[in-house]
């Protein structure tokens, strides 16, 4: 293949994925009259705001509950990320290092739950949470997903790569079960822990169906679900407002991701051998 062709192919590929996102970003700087005058017919102003302004952001800030809802999303992100990481760490440690009957079966059972998508199982999940009396509560949103098969898998895998001799050395030094975890294992799986945390943090912005079902009160709702109700495909939608609000919503996720991603560089555990 010739060089320019390769370059073009990559450019097209990149554009395919980034252009829609840039288009949405541009839309957030338009106002409605601008949008409905120019966006429908092909010109430069189809894609870019003719009279860029931040009016949409101003209106997004005045949406009555958006700030509360945004806080809900971010808080849920922290709770989910921390909860799944801690529970996965403990379970991963047990599944990797302890010997007990049915360990492999338990691990497989955990992985198997990956095949139960929320979309399919929404009504029974709603009944379970209703029986626990958690509908319309923050914990009703969070608890069902604190156990994460992906998290357990990720962390167990990372712990498997920490040489057992390190645990043994620590326990000969007098460390108990918790201290082996703290001194021999934790420092060696930091990368995996941060990856797990970050993944589950960002994953909250993916949520739609479950909060839509399990949270009926507006001030407990997540921002992205509330914004979705602004879209009415069959009538004219205020897209500028939608995107301004959406961008405000994902901004915290981006900030956290930007801060933590540099810790993601794979950390290799070694004992000094080989």
């Amino acid at each position: 293949m010739k060089r320019p062709l390769r370059f073009m192919l990559r450019l097209v590929l990149a554009a395919l994925f980034v252009a829609p996102i840039l288009l949405a970003l541009a839309a957030s700087f338009r106002d409605n009259s601008d949008m409905y005058r120019y966006a429908g017919s092909l010109s430069l102003w189809t894609f870019l705001p003719a009279e860029p302004g931040i009016d949409a952001y101003r209106r997004a800030f005045t949406l009555p509950l958006l700030q509360t809802q945004l806080f809900n999303t971010v808080l849920l992100g922290f709770v989910m990320a921390t909860g799944t990481t801690v529970s996965s760490l403990l379970a991963g440690y047990a599944l990797s290092r302890f010997r007990f009957r049915g360990r492999q079966a338990l691990f497989l059972l955990m992985l198997f739950t990956l095949f139960i998508p929320v979309d399919v199982i929404l009504p029974p999940l709603f009944f379970v949470v209703r029986d626990l009396g958690l509908i319309d509560s923050f914990w009703g949103l969070a608890l069902p997903f604190i156990f994460s098969p992906i998290g357990v898998y990720l962390i167990r895998q990372a712990i498997e790569e920490v040489p057992r001799e390190l645990d043994h050395a620590a326990s000969l030094d007098g460390a108990g079960l918790w201290e082996v975890l703290r001194t021999a294992i934790l420092p060696n799986i930091r990368g995996a822990l941060i990856a797990c945390w970050l993944m589950h943090f960002v994953f909250v912005w993916e949520w739609y169906l479950w909060p839509l079902t399990a949270m009926r009160s507006d001030d407990g709702q997540l921002a992205q679900v509330a914004i979705a109700s602004l879209i009415d495909p069959l009538r004219s939608t205020d897209y500028a407002l939608v995107f301004a609000a959406a961008i405000l919503t994902i901004l915290p996720a981006f900030v956290v991701f930007a801060i933590l991603q540099r810790f993601l560089t794979s950390s290799q555990a070694t004992t000094g051998g080989k």
Binding site: P20, I21, L23, A24, A27, M35, Y36, A39, G40, T46, F47, V202, W205, E206, W207, Y208, Q224, V225, I227, A228, I231, P233, S236, T237, Y239, V242, F243, A246, T249, I250, A253, F254, F257
Partner: peptide
């Protein structure tokens, strides 16, 4: 990274019958 809801907004806008690109 944008989450399913936001990507759905984006598609709704791109394919909007009147103002969609």
């Amino acid at each position: 990274f944008f989450g399913l809801p936001v990507t759905t907004f984006i598609f709704a806008y791109m394919f909007d019958a009147n103002v969609g690109a």
